[in-house]
Design a protein around this nucleic acid. Structure first.
Lengths: 72, 72
DNA sequence: CTTCGAAGTGCATTATACAGCTCTTTTTTT
DNA sequence: AAAAAAAGAGCTGTATAATGCACTTCGAAG
């Protein structure tokens, strides 16, 4: 998942859950400004910020192997 | 995956691939100091840094739903 | 014990993420 | 269309991530 996908995933998940940026910001204890920047594609969140958001959205950050089948 | 797990995953993957911190730092274009801090559990890497490292290690950062079955 | 490679740490600098406040723009609701 | 809500953006401190350099620590090999 590259950058844009991760952002999109967070944003879509938030919308599916019908939570506003403001509510998510409060619940995750991430500044509203930070969340706004993140969702609008600006900035480069820290892992901690990403985890705080993901957590509230019932998601988790993970690392998985690419090319399970073959390179390319 | 919480913080420590992510770190552990990166570190173990690097070791399995028999790459030194120095080599990984160069390949991923992440400062050696940054990688060292990260692997020794200090700091809070940005998504970009994490992605650069994961990429070289043939991994990718992703977000997945927790509790697919049920809460807890 | 000495040497060497890899990993970890202290210090300093630069860049930028985080955050709040205010205002504008966009979207939704009535 | 007007009002209200939500999202986006400018300005601005403060905190800290990213980085380089030099030194220390650790483990393996001689």
């Amino acid at each position: 998942m590259h950058f844009e996908e991760l952002i999109k995933t967070i944003k879509e998940r938030r919308e599916v859950m019908q939570v506003t940026q403001e509510a998510l910001a409060e619940l995750s204890r991430v500044g509203l400004r930070t969340l706004k920047q993140f969702e609008s594609g600006k900035g480069n969140p820290t892992l901690l910020t990403l985890q705080k958001l993901a957590d509230v959205l019932g998601m988790e950050v993970c690392l998985k192997l690419k090319n399970v089948t073959r390179s390319k």
